[in-house]
Design a protein around this nucleic acid. Structure first.
Length: 271
DNA sequence: GCCAACGTTGGC
DNA sequence: GCCAACGTTGGC
Protein backbone atom coordinates (compact mmCIF):
# COMPACT_ATOMS: atom_id res chain seq x y z
CA UNK A 1 0.00 0.00 0.00
CA UNK A 2 0.85 3.25 -0.65
CA UNK A 3 2.51 5.35 1.86
CA UNK A 4 0.17 7.76 3.48
CA UNK A 5 0.92 11.25 4.62
CA UNK A 6 -0.01 13.03 7.79
CA UNK A 7 0.45 16.21 9.76
CA UNK A 8 0.95 16.10 13.51
CA UNK A 9 0.99 19.06 15.85
CA UNK A 10 3.22 19.65 18.82
CA UNK A 11 3.76 22.66 21.00
CA UNK A 12 7.22 24.20 20.88
CA UNK A 13 6.63 26.43 23.84
CA UNK A 14 6.78 25.47 27.46
CA UNK A 15 3.43 25.00 29.00
CA UNK A 16 2.97 23.35 32.32
CA UNK A 17 0.09 20.98 32.65
CA UNK A 18 -0.36 19.20 35.89
CA UNK A 19 3.13 20.04 36.85
CA UNK A 20 4.71 18.78 33.70
CA UNK A 21 5.98 20.64 30.72
CA UNK A 22 4.28 19.57 27.58
CA UNK A 23 6.70 21.36 25.31
CA UNK A 24 8.02 19.46 22.34
CA UNK A 25 9.74 21.57 19.71
CA UNK A 26 11.53 20.54 16.57
CA UNK A 27 14.75 20.80 18.56
CA UNK A 28 13.39 18.41 21.14
CA UNK A 29 12.22 16.10 18.40
CA UNK A 30 15.56 16.16 16.64
CA UNK A 31 17.37 15.36 19.88
CA UNK A 32 14.97 12.56 20.73
CA UNK A 33 15.12 11.04 17.28
CA UNK A 34 12.00 9.07 18.00
CA UNK A 35 9.04 9.79 20.22
CA UNK A 36 5.81 8.14 21.23
CA UNK A 37 3.03 10.50 20.30
CA UNK A 38 1.17 10.30 23.47
CA UNK A 39 -1.47 12.52 24.83
CA UNK A 40 -3.90 12.57 21.96
CA UNK A 41 -7.35 12.57 23.50
CA UNK A 42 -9.52 13.25 20.53
CA UNK A 43 -11.28 10.35 18.89
CA UNK A 44 -10.80 11.49 15.34
CA UNK A 45 -7.10 12.12 15.81
CA UNK A 46 -6.74 8.75 17.49
CA UNK A 47 -8.53 6.98 14.68
CA UNK A 48 -6.18 8.53 12.18
CA UNK A 49 -3.21 7.32 14.19
CA UNK A 50 -4.64 3.82 14.07
CA UNK A 51 -4.49 4.01 10.30
CA UNK A 52 -0.82 4.87 10.24
CA UNK A 53 1.72 2.37 9.01
CA UNK A 54 5.44 2.26 9.55
CA UNK A 55 7.02 4.40 6.90
CA UNK A 56 4.12 6.78 6.49
CA UNK A 57 5.34 10.33 6.17
CA UNK A 58 4.59 13.02 8.71
CA UNK A 59 4.74 16.80 8.66
CA UNK A 60 5.81 18.00 12.11
CA UNK A 61 3.89 21.15 12.95
CA UNK A 62 4.50 23.81 15.60
CA UNK A 63 1.25 24.75 17.20
CA UNK A 64 0.02 27.19 19.79
CA UNK A 65 3.03 29.44 19.41
CA UNK A 66 3.87 32.75 17.96
CA UNK A 67 4.71 31.50 14.56
CA UNK A 68 2.87 28.27 13.91
CA UNK A 69 3.85 26.23 10.90
CA UNK A 70 5.61 23.18 9.50
CA UNK A 71 9.05 22.68 10.96
CA UNK A 72 10.17 19.20 9.98
CA UNK A 73 9.59 16.00 8.11
CA UNK A 74 9.25 12.77 10.02
CA UNK A 75 7.86 9.31 9.59
CA UNK A 76 5.89 6.74 11.49
CA UNK A 77 8.25 4.28 13.17
CA UNK A 78 5.80 2.21 15.18
CA UNK A 79 2.13 1.57 14.64
CA UNK A 80 -0.64 2.28 17.09
CA UNK A 81 -0.56 0.77 20.55
CA UNK A 82 -2.29 1.79 23.77
CA UNK A 83 -1.29 5.17 25.14
CA UNK A 84 -0.23 4.25 28.63
CA UNK A 85 -0.19 7.84 29.76
CA UNK A 86 -3.97 7.68 29.87
CA UNK A 87 -3.67 5.42 32.93
CA UNK A 88 -1.05 7.45 34.68
CA UNK A 89 -2.81 9.65 37.18
CA UNK A 90 0.16 11.97 37.38
CA UNK A 91 0.29 12.51 33.66
CA UNK A 92 -1.15 15.64 32.11
CA UNK A 93 -3.33 13.60 29.89
CA UNK A 94 -4.54 11.07 32.35
CA UNK A 95 -8.01 9.86 31.54
CA UNK A 96 -9.75 8.40 34.55
CA UNK A 97 -12.36 6.86 32.39
CA UNK A 98 -10.14 4.32 30.71
CA UNK A 99 -8.23 1.35 31.93
CA UNK A 100 -5.75 -1.16 30.69
CA UNK A 101 -8.33 -3.79 30.06
CA UNK A 102 -10.03 -1.63 27.60
CA UNK A 103 -7.68 0.93 26.09
CA UNK A 104 -9.38 3.91 24.67
CA UNK A 105 -6.42 5.99 23.58
CA UNK A 106 -3.64 4.97 21.28
CA UNK A 107 -0.40 6.44 20.09
CA UNK A 108 2.14 5.76 17.41
CA UNK A 109 5.84 6.44 17.45
CA UNK A 110 7.30 8.95 15.11
CA UNK A 111 10.91 9.22 13.99
CA UNK A 112 12.48 12.56 13.21
CA UNK A 113 13.48 12.90 9.60
CA UNK A 114 14.85 16.31 8.78
CA UNK A 115 14.18 19.94 9.39
CA UNK A 116 12.57 21.87 6.64
CA UNK A 117 15.01 24.14 4.88
CA UNK A 118 12.47 26.93 5.03
CA UNK A 119 9.96 26.96 7.84
CA UNK A 120 6.50 26.91 6.26
CA UNK A 121 4.31 29.21 8.33
CA UNK A 122 0.62 28.66 8.71
CA UNK A 123 0.20 32.29 7.70
CA UNK A 124 1.70 31.54 4.32
CA UNK A 125 -0.61 28.61 3.78
CA UNK A 126 -3.57 30.68 4.86
CA UNK A 127 -2.51 33.40 2.56
CA UNK A 128 -2.28 31.03 -0.36
CA UNK A 129 -5.62 29.52 0.57
CA UNK A 130 -7.39 32.82 0.86
CA UNK A 131 -5.96 34.54 -2.15
CA UNK A 132 -7.60 34.48 -5.48
CA UNK A 133 -4.26 34.71 -7.09
CA UNK A 134 -1.21 32.79 -6.25
CA UNK A 135 1.32 35.00 -4.46
CA UNK A 136 4.16 35.52 -6.85
CA UNK A 137 6.80 34.56 -4.39
CA UNK A 138 5.46 31.06 -4.40
CA UNK A 139 4.27 30.97 -7.99
CA UNK A 140 6.37 27.87 -8.43
CA UNK A 141 3.74 25.71 -6.75
CA UNK A 142 1.36 26.49 -9.55
CA UNK A 143 -2.39 26.73 -9.47
CA UNK A 144 -2.72 23.08 -8.72
CA UNK A 145 -0.41 23.53 -5.80
CA UNK A 146 -2.51 26.38 -4.54
CA UNK A 147 -5.59 24.27 -4.91
CA UNK A 148 -4.01 21.53 -2.82
CA UNK A 149 -3.19 24.02 -0.08
CA UNK A 150 -6.72 25.38 -0.11
CA UNK A 151 -8.00 21.90 0.60
CA UNK A 152 -5.68 21.19 3.51
CA UNK A 153 -7.37 20.31 6.76
CA UNK A 154 -4.92 22.63 8.43
CA UNK A 155 -6.55 25.49 6.59
CA UNK A 156 -10.11 24.28 6.38
CA UNK A 157 -10.55 23.01 9.87
CA UNK A 158 -7.72 23.83 11.94
CA UNK A 159 -8.33 22.22 15.18
CA UNK A 160 -7.44 18.61 14.67
CA UNK A 161 -4.04 17.70 16.07
CA UNK A 162 -3.50 14.78 13.71
CA UNK A 163 -4.57 15.24 10.13
CA UNK A 164 -4.40 13.42 6.87
CA UNK A 165 -2.38 15.09 4.10
CA UNK A 166 -2.90 14.28 0.47
CA UNK A 167 0.14 13.22 -1.45
CA UNK A 168 -0.07 16.14 -3.80
CA UNK A 169 -0.28 18.46 -0.86
CA UNK A 170 2.74 16.82 0.70
CA UNK A 171 4.63 17.51 -2.48
CA UNK A 172 3.62 21.14 -2.46
CA UNK A 173 4.78 21.49 1.12
CA UNK A 174 8.06 19.89 0.13
CA UNK A 175 8.49 22.44 -2.60
CA UNK A 176 7.76 25.32 -0.29
CA UNK A 177 10.09 23.96 2.36
CA UNK A 178 12.82 23.55 -0.19
CA UNK A 179 12.45 26.72 -2.16
CA UNK A 180 11.10 29.27 0.25
CA UNK A 181 10.85 32.66 -1.38
CA UNK A 182 8.32 34.41 0.75
CA UNK A 183 10.55 35.32 3.60
CA UNK A 184 11.55 38.65 2.33
CA UNK A 185 8.17 39.49 1.37
CA UNK A 186 6.13 38.13 3.89
CA UNK A 187 4.07 35.53 3.16
CA UNK A 188 2.94 36.82 0.27
CA UNK A 189 0.71 39.22 0.78
CA UNK A 190 -2.64 38.65 0.94
CA UNK A 191 -4.41 39.57 -1.72
CA UNK A 192 -7.82 39.55 -1.51
CA UNK A 193 -9.05 38.30 1.42
CA UNK A 194 -6.74 38.68 3.62
CA UNK A 195 -7.24 38.02 6.61
CA UNK A 196 -4.87 38.79 8.42
CA UNK A 197 -1.81 39.43 8.47
CA UNK A 198 0.00 37.63 6.48
CA UNK A 199 2.65 36.58 7.89
CA UNK A 200 5.41 37.46 6.77
CA UNK A 201 7.94 38.13 8.47
CA UNK A 202 8.66 35.07 9.33
CA UNK A 203 12.02 35.00 8.98
CA UNK A 204 13.06 38.16 8.92
CA UNK A 205 12.62 39.39 12.05
CA UNK A 206 10.86 36.82 13.31
CA UNK A 207 9.29 37.02 16.12
CA UNK A 208 10.54 37.11 19.19
CA UNK A 209 9.64 35.69 22.05
CA UNK A 210 8.19 32.77 22.03
CA UNK A 211 8.79 30.04 23.71
CA UNK A 212 10.74 29.32 26.30
CA UNK A 213 13.74 28.77 25.02
CA UNK A 214 14.41 30.18 22.18
CA UNK A 215 12.82 29.68 19.55
CA UNK A 216 13.26 28.12 16.84
CA UNK A 217 10.28 27.75 16.05
CA UNK A 218 10.16 29.50 13.38
CA UNK A 219 12.19 28.48 11.05
CA UNK A 220 14.70 26.58 11.83
CA UNK A 221 15.83 25.24 9.31
CA UNK A 222 18.24 26.60 7.72
CA UNK A 223 19.94 23.92 6.70
CA UNK A 224 18.56 20.99 7.46
CA UNK A 225 19.91 18.05 6.94
CA UNK A 226 18.06 16.02 5.12
CA UNK A 227 18.50 12.66 5.38
CA UNK A 228 15.94 10.84 6.20
CA UNK A 229 14.87 9.26 8.88
CA UNK A 230 15.24 5.90 9.20
CA UNK A 231 15.56 4.98 12.45
CA UNK A 232 12.99 3.09 13.62
CA UNK A 233 12.91 2.57 16.86
CA UNK A 234 12.00 -0.29 18.08
CA UNK A 235 11.99 -0.81 21.38
CA UNK A 236 10.93 1.69 23.08
CA UNK A 237 11.87 4.79 22.93
CA UNK A 238 13.90 6.12 24.99
CA UNK A 239 13.21 9.06 26.21
CA UNK A 240 11.70 11.32 24.42
CA UNK A 241 10.40 14.24 25.52
CA UNK A 242 7.46 15.59 26.10
CA UNK A 243 5.27 17.80 24.80
CA UNK A 244 2.04 17.37 24.82
CA UNK A 245 -0.75 19.06 25.40
CA UNK A 246 -3.33 19.32 27.42
CA UNK A 247 -6.44 17.96 27.64
CA UNK A 248 -8.31 17.66 30.30
CA UNK A 249 -7.56 14.90 31.92
CA UNK A 250 -9.20 14.07 34.35
CA UNK A 251 -8.64 14.81 37.38
CA UNK A 252 -7.29 12.86 39.61
CA UNK A 253 -4.09 12.66 39.55
CA UNK A 254 -1.92 13.40 41.89
CA UNK A 255 1.06 14.61 41.54
CA UNK A 256 3.78 14.59 39.51
CA UNK A 257 6.34 12.62 39.37
CA UNK A 258 5.25 9.74 38.65
CA UNK A 259 6.76 7.84 36.59
CA UNK A 260 5.81 8.49 33.73
CA UNK A 261 8.47 8.24 32.14
CA UNK A 262 8.17 10.17 29.56
CA UNK A 263 6.01 12.61 28.95
CA UNK A 264 5.85 13.54 25.76
CA UNK A 265 4.10 15.13 23.64
CA UNK A 266 1.87 15.46 21.84
CA UNK A 267 -0.05 17.29 20.18
CA UNK A 268 -2.83 18.17 21.31
CA UNK A 269 -5.36 16.43 20.66
CA UNK A 270 -7.76 18.53 21.07
CA UNK A 271 -10.22 17.30 22.75
C1' DG B 1 -31.46 11.50 19.24
C1' DC B 2 -31.60 16.65 19.34
C1' DC B 3 -29.61 20.51 20.91
C1' DA B 4 -28.00 24.00 24.19
C1' DA B 5 -24.39 24.83 27.41
C1' DC B 6 -19.88 24.33 28.18
C1' DG B 7 -14.97 23.54 27.52
C1' DT B 8 -11.00 23.41 24.57
C1' DT B 9 -8.00 24.46 20.74
C1' DG B 10 -5.22 27.49 18.87
C1' DG B 11 -4.55 31.60 15.83
C1' DC B 12 -3.86 36.30 16.38
C1' DG C 1 -4.98 37.72 26.71
C1' DC C 2 -8.95 37.57 23.49
C1' DC C 3 -12.00 35.19 21.18
C1' DA C 4 -13.85 32.27 17.30
C1' DA C 5 -14.56 27.67 15.90
C1' DC C 6 -15.78 23.44 17.10
C1' DG C 7 -16.06 19.16 19.85
C1' DT C 8 -18.13 17.11 23.87
C1' DT C 9 -21.42 16.51 27.46
C1' DG C 10 -25.66 15.88 29.25
C1' DG C 11 -30.65 17.20 29.82
C1' DC C 12 -34.80 16.29 27.85
Amino acid sequence: MATKHWLMKAEPNSRIVKGKDVKFSVDDFEAAKTTPWEGVRNAEARNLMKEMKVGDKVLFYHSNCKNPGIAAFAEVSKEAYPDYTAWDASHPYYDAKTDKDNPKWYMVEVAFGSRVQHFVPLALLRNIASSSELPEEVAYIGEDGAKAIKAMALVTRGRLSVQRVEEETWEVIEQLAEKGGWEEVGTGKPKTKAKPKVNTKVTSSRRKRSRSKKAEDSEGAEDAEEDEVEVEADEEVEENRPRQRKRKAATIEDEPGGESSKPRRSTRARR
